[in-house]
């Protein structure tokens, strides 16, 4: 009788442990993606497409809206970046890009450090993004040697998918220029600029979402009274199986994040605001 009781208890314990283990496995599932694309307007997101995915990014910014005589900036000089990223691992991708404004070329990488889980044991996804930009314009070449044309951007992102509709992300960003560019004939002597980005999306249908981004510097250049302007952007995102399309109004013109962070002069008015769009295309291998 005693033996029978022991066997029953043992079976129940093993059964309970197996169920508990199963539940734990279930609980630790990663949360569904917080965003549709690696790009959210002028910001990066914690998203990294699955391993062996190639992404082509087309980023376009029209000229500033101004008084509307240039068809809301559509007839003004525009800025374009063509970028490619490849997911080497599920948590790591590498990429490069070419930008029209100031003939930049860049190399970048993103690593997913932590992934939000459905059980909320890990409440946020955390990712690092780094970009090295090389300005290849004649003006940059006059400043000095190759090393003076190089600048760096670092970003640490914290994103949370609050619901299937709402996702928000906050990031600390940091840029470093090897050679400080002078503007308005005044000396800007800060090689290092820190900043904060807050971005998000609210889905209102299976494929469409309202998107926003706010990016502000946390320090300013010394030796000048010209201040760096923050970016305020509002837009619409349409995502399909292989594409994401974003159209928005904001006041960042350049497509190199450290240039935006350290040198944006566009204010939140018609002479600073502009229309832009991003398109991404995915190929899985």
């Amino acid at each position: 009788m005693k033996l029978k009781t022991m066997i029953t208890l043992l079976s129940l314990t093993v059964g309970f442990l197996a169920v508990a283990q199963e539940e734990e496995k279930k609980e630790e599932k990663p949360a569904r993606p917080a965003f549709e694309s690696q790009l959210l307007i002028d910001d990066q997101t914690v998203i990294i497409p699955t391993k062996n995915t190639l992404e082509w990014d087309i980023q376009h910014r029209f000229g500033t809206i101004d008084d509307g005589k240039n068809l809301a900036g559509l007839y003004e000089t525009s800025n374009i970046r063509l970028g490619f990223t490849y997911s080497v691992l599920d948590k790591l991708n590498v990429g490069f890009g070419l930008t029209k404004d100031r003939n930049y070329y860049d190399f970048n990488a993103k690593y997913l450090i932590l992934q939000q889980t459905r059980s909320n044991k890990i409440p946020v996804s955390v990712a690092y993004y780094g970009l090295i930009g090389i300005e290849n314009s004649d003006r940059a070449k006059e400043i000095g040697g190759f090393i003076d044309q190089v600048s760096y951007f670092n970003q640490i992102m914290f994103a949370r998918r609050f619901s299937p509709n709402l996702s928000l992300q906050a990031s600390f960003v940091y840029s470093h220029y090897n050679a400080v560019v002078r503007w308005n004939k005044q000396v800007g002597e800060s090689y290092d600029i820190f900043g904060l980005n807050v971005s998000g999306r609210y889905k209102f249908s299976g494929t469409m979402a309202a998107i926003f981004s706010y990016q502000t510097p946390l320090n300013d250049h010394t030796g000048t009274d010209v201040s760096i302007e923050p970016n305020y952007t509002l837009g619409l995102e349409i995502a399909t199986s292989g594409h994401a399309f974003q159209v928005f109004v904001g006041n960042y013109y350049t497509l190199i994040p450290q240039r935006n962070l350290a040198y944006n002069q566009n204010e939140l008015n018609s002479s600073g605001l502009l229309i832009g769009f991003n398109m991404t295309r995915l190929w899985n291998f």
Binding site: R32, P164, K203, S205, G206, T207, A239, T240, S241
Partner: peptide, 14 residues
């Protein structure tokens, strides 16, 4: 079903 409906809209509907 709501999650699946969104997946359907994104990947299958077209």
């Amino acid at each position: 079903l709501m999650i699946a409906k969104r997946l359907w809209s994104k990947h299958c509907k077209s």
